[in-house]
Design a protein around this nucleic acid. Sequence first.
DNA 1: GAGTGCTTGTGAATTCATTCACAAAGTAGC
DNA 2: GCTACTTTGTGAATGAATTCACAAGCACTC
Lengths: 217, 217
Amino acid sequence: MNSQALSPPVKRIADSTVRRLSIYLRFLEEFEGRGLSTVSSEELARRGGTTSAQVRKDLSFFGSFGKRGLGYSVPELSTSLREILGLGRGWRVVIIGAGKIGAALAQYRGFRQRGFQIVAAYDSNAEKIGGTLEGIEIRDMHRFEADVEKDHPEIAVLAVPMEHAQAVLDRVARAGIKAVLNFAPVQLHAPADMTVKTVNMAMELEGLTFALTNQGV
Amino acid sequence: MNSQALSPPVKRIADSTVRRLSIYLRFLEEFEGRGLSTVSSEELARRGGTTSAQVRKDLSFFGSFGKRGLGYSVPELSTSLREILGLGRGWRVVIIGAGKIGAALAQYRGFRQRGFQIVAAYDSNAEKIGGTLEGIEIRDMHRFEADVEKDHPEIAVLAVPMEHAQAVLDRVARAGIKAVLNFAPVQLHAPADMTVKTVNMAMELEGLTFALTNQGV
DNA sequence: GAGTGCTTGTGAATTCATTCACAAAGTAGC
DNA sequence: GCTACTTTGTGAATGAATTCACAAGCACTC
Ligand SMILES: NC(=O)c1ccc[n+]([C@@H]2O[C@H](COP(=O)([O-])OP(=O)(O)OC[C@H]3O[C@@H](n4cnc5c(N)ncnc54)[C@H](O)[C@@H]3O)[C@@H](O)[C@H]2O)c1
Ligand SMILES: NC(=O)c1ccc[n+]([C@@H]2O[C@H](COP(=O)([O-])OP(=O)(O)OC[C@H]3O[C@@H](n4cnc5c(N)ncnc54)[C@H](O)[C@@H]3O)[C@@H](O)[C@H]2O)c1
């Protein structure tokens, strides 16, 4: 098989696989920084807390990237993973809800580093509109639909109070944005052609307290 | 079977099950607020984006909570789920890293509401030490081990730069804390008796860009 | 108190994900 | 060019999670 041409993913790829690809990419970038030229599936697995067979299987869904007896070329695999994950290009992001979480995200360097450009923030509170969030303009939520037509953001970050999250999601969907990162601790219902990922800290915390009460000493 | 006595979980409970229990609890609390007295597995499933069989299976790991022909008593099931998830009591939490994310978390009402009490924040930056984060004292990281001996926090939230995350985790582990919520975008290696949950926003975003590039139009 | 309708609880069947295990393909040394 | 050694890529085997499907239980009516 050819390591250049990315096979189009033939069957649906599991979420767990995609998350692991992200993890591998992070290590590869670290290795790249240290000037290492090759890495084995064994080494990637050790760092990522999985098995070498898992690493090879994950990659095999997209093609053949390694050299038997040698491992994977660090720069080549990095490039391939970035391409697979859609990081080979820039993405325009809007933040909706210029509160505490919105502010933390606006200044987060990790986003810009990976090609996510925050084009605007939106809020419905008159006191916030017109101000800036770490240099990003806070716009009136009334302008949202009109702005989307102009700016064509691909991703919306939802950082509004949970009571408003579903209503805002509906607006985002109608405006034609197909990807949402949601911070409100609610299950959102979205059209089938939209992808919504929810970061639910309360849920993670409850995972911890469950472990503490059930597996704990 | 008896709906009062919680069966101790006989076999290891899947993470996915615990996350869904959190979701169900959230709806139950909403129903409780609206004064509804019973709910069916079908209704819970519809709201939570799963199937009724899944809801019943999830609950069955812990006992028998429903009445055939009728459904589940909202207040009883809420109480049981809170107990299962370890929310029947308070938890002491420390935040390590009084930066942007630490500040957003410190003021987050969702924590207190669920019985998580933030007892202190820690930082290594002399300019921050002695100040407060939303009313919570920012202490010198040097005091950390001594304070843990006194305060016995059960949960640590890690909000330090990624370069320091593993070193701080090691300190947390040595101090005897067994549960960590990590916000640094790195895979952490922890002792087996410790539970670490990582909230990795970059990874979620990459899940979105993967979907946009591969499932997209 | 028998009949009807609804909903749970749970084995069995199925689907999905991970791990095993090994042939194939490469490197390196001589 | 042959041998020894390493590591990939992938079918087959195993294991885990979800869905199916239905007997059993309860409420309500007549
Ligand atoms: N702060 C945290 O650490 C934290 C943690 C986890 C989850 N969350 C969730 O993130 C969300 C935001 O939290 P926060 O702490 O930043 O709250 P916040 O109150 O600081 O910010 C919310 C912002 O949204 C704006 N807003 C309200 N309704 C709006 C609408 N319809 N359209 C546009 N903007 C609107 C408000 O004016 C406000 O500026 C909440 O759902 C919260 O549960 C926060
Ligand atoms: N800001 C975001 O929206 C965001 C999003 C996702 C992930 N993160 C991650 O969260 C972490 C914190 O991000 P932030 O934006 O709050 O950064 P920040 O720079 O605002 O805060 C980090 C804080 O940690 C302190 N610190 C550094 N080393 C320490 C140590 N050894 N012990 C104790 N304290 C120490 C610093 O003094 C600083 O106050 C980072 O790992 C970041 O990648 C942040």
